[in-house]
Every structure is written in structure tokens, then in C-alpha cells.
């Protein structure tokens, strides 16, 4: 061996590192998916324990039957048959979806101008406006529902205000305890969840696109419908899903402000698990509403993406 190769060997010597730490590290470096799952693992663990297991139990329950105090664990479709045989269930399910769709529409219509205002008209301190939107969330959901009771009630803010102004002689009775009150309360409760995604999609619109539309002869109104509106659609879709999915199953609001005409499927599910003490039926109703919502959402998403692909 010459001197040259010896020095070369000393400088670039590769001693095989066989320690455990090194081997674990090199496995992680080699496989990106492993790193990804490791990062995800705390969340994944919580999801499995608190989401997947209960849902699996729920599905299992839905195929069992309540036998007064104990549960008959023989597999049966009886609960699902009962759903389709008793008109009350189907009717209530459809009514819940209808109310929720209506509530989603109301929320989007109310949220859009707000999001538009923050995205286009607020020049400085946008963050302050965004924080202000979340202010209602600083109190509990239940308190906000009660607040609407106070506003809409027989001796509530609206009625007493109108009476003291001399516009009414007797309080209005149609304000509270009906589907409209439920929709109003839900729309208020979920407004922020609609405003934020719409705001993000509006904020993302390149301002030069708006200038280009004006330059090509559009009035501000035409420009809105031809550029701003279609480009804000992804935000509208996201907002719609964020409001629709949780409101279908809501039971607190219909219970407190819905009266007898405003009840939704969530109230029946709750009573099956509570007073009626029929867990398998409650589980079946939950599973059915989950499946229905999934079908609706998937159809909605595929149709909107297809519509967008078609127009492009």
C-alpha cells in the first residue's frame, strides 16, 4: 500500500454504526410513510379509541334487540325494519334533512356578505374582524341557545320591545317553539363555520382577475357573478358541508327552542337512549342517519366537482 491510499482511507473511513438508535433513525430516514404515521400516531390513537370503537359498538347494537332490562344479542334487522315500517321515523328523518338543508341555505346567505366584507372591504386589521366573528364561541353553545329563548320568548326581547313601542297589544306566539326558531338558532350558532371557509376562498381570489374582468367591460355586478361567485364556490361547498353535517343530528337546539313541531331525528335518538331505553333502536336510527348523510354529502361533492370540471 502506498502512502496516498492510506491517508485517503483515514479521511473517508466508514465505520459501520450498529447502535440501535442509529438503526432506528436510518429506518425512519428511508421510509417517509413511517415518519408520516409516527407524526399522526397520537391523533390516530385517539381516533381509534374514541371514534372507531364507539361507532363499531353502535353498529353492533343496531343489530341487537332490547328485552326490557337486558339486551338480546341475536343478530336481527328488526330495528331497521321498524324504521321503514313506522312512518314517524322516516318522516322525522326527512324533516331533519329538510330543516338542516334550509338552515344551511340560510347560514350561507347570511355568511356570504360577511365574508365578502372582510375579504374585500376591510383594508387593515382583518385579524380583529376574524376574531370578532368567533366571539359568540366564547360562551357555551347551551347559553347561546338559551339566549335565543330570551330573544324570541313570550315575554322575550322582541315581544316586550314591540309592546313597549306600542306596535303590539299582545305578545306574538309564533316566534318560539317551531322549526323557524330552530333554523334561526342553528344558523346563528354555525355562522362562523360558514364565514371562515367562504372568507378564505374569497381572500384567495387574485385581485388582478377582478381588474381584468372590469377591463374587459364588466360592471361590478357582472364581474361578481362571472368571476367572484364561481371562484368562491369551493368555500361555499366547504361551508355548506360544515353546517349541514352537524346540524342534521343536532338535538339540543330543537329540544330547547323547537317545541313539538320543531323536533328532529336527534331528539328521537336521544329519547331512545334515554327515556325509551331502547339502545338498539337508537343505534339503528343513528346508523341510518349516518348513512343518509354520507350518501347526500358524497352525491353533493361529486356533482359539484363534475359541474366545475364541465364549466372549465
Amino acid at each position: 500500500m502506498t502512502d496516498q491510499t492510506q491517508t485517503g482511507g483515514a479521511v473517508g473511513s466508514y465505520t459501520e454504526n450498529t447502535s440501535l438508535g442509529f438503526r432506528v433513525r436510518s429506518v425512519f430516514l428511508k421510509h417517509e410513510w413511517l415518519r408520516g404515521y409516527t407524526l399522526l400516531s397520537p391523533t390516530l390513537l385517539v381516533m381509534i379509541c374514541l371514534m372507531c370503537v364507539p361507532i363499531f359498538m353502535l353498529v353492533a347494537y343496531s343489530f341487537w334487540t332490547q328485552n326490557y332490562l337486558d339486551i338480546d344479542k341475536t343478530f336481527t334487522f328488526a330495528n331497521y325494519e321498524a324504521f321503514f315500517q313506522k312512518p314517524i321515523y322516516v318522516a322525522l328523518m326527512m324533516k331533519s334533512i329538510r330543516m338542516s338543508l334550509f338552515c344551511t341555505a340560510v347560514t350561507l346567505v347570511l355568511a356570504y356578505p360577511m365574508a365578502y366584507f372582510i375579504a374585500f372591504k376591510v383594508k387593515s386589521n382583518k385579524l380583529v374582524w376574524l376574531i370578532l366573528i368567533t366571539v359568540p364561541f366564547w360562551t357555551s353553545y347551551l347559553l347561546r341557545v338559551f339566549a335565543w329563548k330570551v330573544i324570541l320568548g313570550y315575554n322575550g326581547v322582541i315581544n316586550s320591545g314591540l309592546i313597549s313601542l306600542g306596535l303590539l297589544s299582545e305578545p306574538l306566539q309564533f316566534l318560539l317553539y317551531n322549526p323557524t326558531a330552530v333554523v334561526l338558532t342553528l344558523a346563528h350558532a354555525w355562522a362562523a363555520f360558514a364565514i371562515l371557509p367562504i372568507y378564505v376562498s374569497l381572500e384567495k381570489i387574485d385581485r388582478s382577475l377582478l381588474e381584468a374582468a372590469t377591463d374587459l367591460g364588466d360592471t361590478p355586478t357582472e364581474r361578481f357573478w362571472r368571476v367572484t361567485w364561481p371562484l368562491s364556490m369551493p368555500g361555499m361547498v366547504a361551508a355548506g358541508l360544515l353546517v349541514f353535517i352537524p346540524t342534521v343530528g343536532d338535538y339540543v337546539t330543537p329540544r330547547l327552542v323547537g317545541g313539538t313541531t320543531g323536533i328532529m331525528i336527534g331528539n328521537i335518538v336521544q329519547s331512545q337512549f334515554g327515556k325509551a331505553n331502547n339502545w338498539p333502536m337508537g343505534a339503528a336510527l343513528s346508523v341510518i342517519s349516518m348513512i343518509l348523510i354520507t350518501i347526500l354529502v358524497v352525491t353533493f361533492i361529486t356533482s359539484t366537482t363534475r359541474a366545475r370540471a364541465k364549466s372549465a
Binding site: 387574485d206 388582478s208 382577475l209 381588474e211 381584468a212 374582468a213 377591463d215 374587459l216 368571476v227 364561481p230 371562484l231 366545475r308 364549466s311 372549465a312
Partner: peptide, 12 residues
């Protein structure tokens, strides 16, 4: 009419 710096092609 104007040709914009980033072209402002309508993405939709």
C-alpha cells in the same frame, strides 16, 4: 384593454 403582468387568466 390591458394585458396584466401575471396575465390574469380566469382559472375557472
Amino acid at each position: 384593454n390591458m394585458v396584466f403582468q401575471n396575465y390574469a387568466i380566469f382559472p375557472h
